[in-house]
Write a protein that binds this DNA or RNA. Structure first.
Lengths: 360, 360
DNA sequence: GTGAAAGCGCTAACAT
DNA sequence: ATGTTAGCGCTTTCAC
């Protein structure tokens, strides 16, 4: 591996000059620059990452800690998000460090460890809780992070989230329009922020439409297709079973559809089912699932943008910032996104889209 | 952040001594050791990872490059494997760097980049191809790697694989025992090593049992539940449709089951379907899926063991190795695994287990 | 426009 | 048993 020193010897300049030439500093003569550049190319020079990181006190690495109970994730969601994060990070020369936690306590200790060992510059969080231990820790430590989802105990932290309240407005209105009055829902635990928001929204908008939702129609705490099947089966055995089931992710909805089929109901006619996420399989399910689309990969990328912006911001306080650098990091929202943002574009709420298919 | 220097000043020793005390070298007085240790504890000393890595010329990081077309993965497989890798790596103080590739060419260039920038000490590969461009590159570069799966163009590389040949023997025998003579199969592209091996095995064992398998019964090149549905539907529309369908993963099998249901066949009686992987959902599908179990998480861990062993081996050539270190790294195979291994335990073949459930 | 020198925090060879 | 010295490869004052 060629080093700056090797190049310096070859072109008869000092290491310093070579370093600056390569970095494109303005106080290096054009001639020197071209000499150095071509030498570097020929020698296949690649800067030593470790040395640069040590010197710059920057790991150029983003941390992503995955809770092992990934049952919580619909798996497709997880890979999509990961792809979005990884690619955007790579665009900025950042690496992605992934750690998988054994359990809840382990998770927090992993964050502690990664921080104290200085292995990452910041974290990306997803699947946020209303009271989120991770957000709390990171806020307390003053360590940079950005989230897919909101929390209640870190109100100024940067996030991207889908407007679940609005999404559920779309869904309830859609179902009420279709004439449904017995509407149930199956969702994740209410401790998860988005789940609570969605449930609240369902309740509110049903109330507005003058539709009652009895307690036994509300099933919270579930994730998987199996859960969806079981809860839906149970709902359908009630004395007055629902005619529509709102599920808080697509997997739950698949389970509910199966339960309906097993109860000999015609899905979309006798029983309506809706999902959330629009994972790839949803369009190909039978019948295809009515659901809410989320640009998960794009959101992953956006969370990285927010995080890197935050990191730069904190650096700015400590170090002098080149103006050019400062200008580089500005949050850019894709044209195609409908979004509500705060003044600094650090807290973004996406307007979701309802995809009407065969299950309603 | 406290540094060695800080501790050294506090306890009136040199930085060297402190370093060695903390590392537990035998040539430091017990007294000094305890003084240094307690000072370090009090000051909350954590070694600077970057500095240590630069000095040791080791990144303590494993690379895992995920092809973006993760449609290829059954998603559950992917997270399980990741969990196994990450946890085992953590046991040895190694980090996991994950990169997601846009496409096939991008993938190779990511490997090149990570190598030349010195960001990882070795790679973990999965979903291997018969002629695997990654394995080829890494072998050529002499860069450490270990695989879940075999390849044909890197015969001495360390791997763990499930014995797919044996697995298919179990499945075909099971089906033939049940009286099936019209047996079809749906698998991934034959360019994928495990897929080719499984297909070969199916053909051989059917031949042995005196069962014909016509060309139109063989559908290779598929991954998803949707694929499974489409191919199975097509098979069932043939003049002489199969009475059993062997699928090379569980997702395909789910699709095939659905196709059978839609054709009003009783699954397990009129039509038998088998899967592969035993992902969590398989036990809860309706009917529950007959399939082959793979301890995916355990395999992920084992691949890490193989890789770290390989890395140490290569280091041993360059650097002097502490004996204790050398002793530490020996491949240990879990008691519960039935396994065929080479002399050095660097190439492992797991004996799979057939899980008979409701679909046969 | 260029170079010398210092230092990020750590470890190891080599004294003593 | 401990300290001195050197250096990993890079970036950044600061002086000329």
């Amino acid at each position: 591996m060629a080093t700056l020193k090797d190049i310096a010897q070859r072109v008869n300049r000092s290491v310093t000059t070579v370093s600056r030439a390569l970095a494109g500093y303005s106080d290096v003569s054009p001639e020197t620059i071209s000499i150095v550049r071509s030498a570097a190319d020929e020698m296949g020079y690649v800067p030593n990452t470790l040395a640069r990181r040590l010197r710059n006190r920057s790991t150029e690495t983003i941390g992503f800690v995955v809770p092992d109970s990934s049952g919580g994730y619909s798996e497709a969601f997880f890979s999509e998000f990961l792809a979005g994060v990884s690619k955007r990070a790579a665009d900025f020369g950042y690496d992605l460090l992934v750690a998988v936690a054994h359990d809840k306590e382990d998770e927090i200790s992993i964050y502690r460890k990664l921080i104290s060992e200085g292995k990452v510059d910041g974290f990306v969080l997803t699947r946020t809780y209303c009271r989120d231990a991770r957000a709390e820790l990171l806020t307390k430590e003053g360590f940079p992070f950005a989230m897919f989802g909101r929390v209640e105990n870190a109100s100024s932290a940067p996030y991207v989230d889908e407007d679940g309240t609005y999404a559920m407005k779309l869904i309830t209105e859609h179902l009420v329009d279709r004439g449904h009055t017995r509407i149930a829902c199956i969702g994740q635990p209410e401790s998860i922020m988005f789940s609570r928001l969605r449930l609240q929204s369902v309740k509110e908008h049903l109330a507005t439409a003058g539709v009652q939702i009895p307690e036994e129609y509300i099933r919270m705490g579930y994730f998987s297709q199996k859960d969806g099947y079981e809860q839906a089966s149970d709902l359908l055995r009630l004395p007055t079973p629902p005619s529509a089931i709102i599920c808080f992710n697509d997997l739950l909805a698949f389970g509910a559809v199966n339960a309906g089929k097993d109860a000999d109901l015609r899905i979309g006619r006798d029983l309506a089912v809706t999902g959330f996420d629009d994972i790839p399989m949803s369009a190909h399910y039978r019948p295809p699932l009515t659901t809410i689309s989320q640009p998960i990969q794009g959101i992953g990328g956006m969370v990285v943008d927010l995080l890197l912006d935050r990191i730069q911001e904190l650096r700015g306080i400590t170090f002098q910032e080149h103006e050019s650098e400062a200008a580089k990091r500005r949050i850019l929202i894709p044209e195609s996104w409908k979004v509500e943002a705060d003044r600094h574009h650090h807290q973004l709420l996406l307007k979701p889209e309802l995809i009407i298919r065969g299950t309603t």
